[in-house]
Amino acid sequence: MTALLEVQGISLSFGGLKAVSDFSIALRAGDLQGLIGPNGAGKTTVFNLLTGVYRADRGSIRLGGLDLGGAKPSRIAAAGLARTFQNIRLFGDLSVLDNVRVACHLRAATSMAGAILRTSAHRGEEAALRAYATELLEIFGLGDRTGEQARNLPYGDQRRLEIARALATSPKVLLLDEPAAGMNPQEKAALSALIRFVRDRFGVAILLIEHDMGLVMKVCEGITVLDHGVTIARGTPEQVQNDPVVIEAYLGAPAQEGGGVPAERRS
């Protein structure tokens, strides 16, 4: 099976600083991979490159054979690449339902004139979107909170709403940026089940940034490790876990200051 998302040698510099250098990854349909690395390793920058928030200096990004280089984020989303945000970016004043319905926007087909005249086609579509969004929210356990303002949800619910919203764009590939941040152990356990469920139910490929090593090791089938923008390791969870380069990157060389502890970090 050929790769769905194929990233080859993308690089980005901010001024003189190389944020990401020569990053490559390939995801097949249904893959569940992790992207890890110490703070400031460039993980979120990779997501921003993939989703068009930043434009890569070099390299290519292809999704299902479609070249996404230089496309703006909305077009990339339309092509089937959806994401969540590390610092939650919900539409706070909108209802939970509307947050998901915004993301359904790509599947709406009626014209503005149709909306103004409330043609039956438009009403049918709105009803279908509402039903779809409601069902999606029920899957994520948010079915009883559809009318609430997103900003009033508890933190864990906000994270799950972000995933539901991203799924509503009907993605082929889903990028999750630290979905477990700020969750308690019970919520984390539920989340790892949810991530697997999402992959199976929706058939999406998932790329996951996460600091919680327990979760990453449990959920991901393949892991890529970044440090200072450079890919330092790649392999199965066991391979990566025992890789001395990775351990050094996390704990720091003896001469250096300790970088961070792999497990249980909250941002």
Binding site: A77, R89, F91, G92, L94, A103, L106, R165, A168
Partner: peptide, 16 residues
């Protein structure tokens, strides 16, 4: 409304 709420997220959800 999504633009007003969060432009980056709106763009990421496919809103041009």
């Amino acid at each position: 409304l999504s633009i007003r709420e969060n432009e980056i997220a709106a763009e990421a959800m496919g809103v041009d």
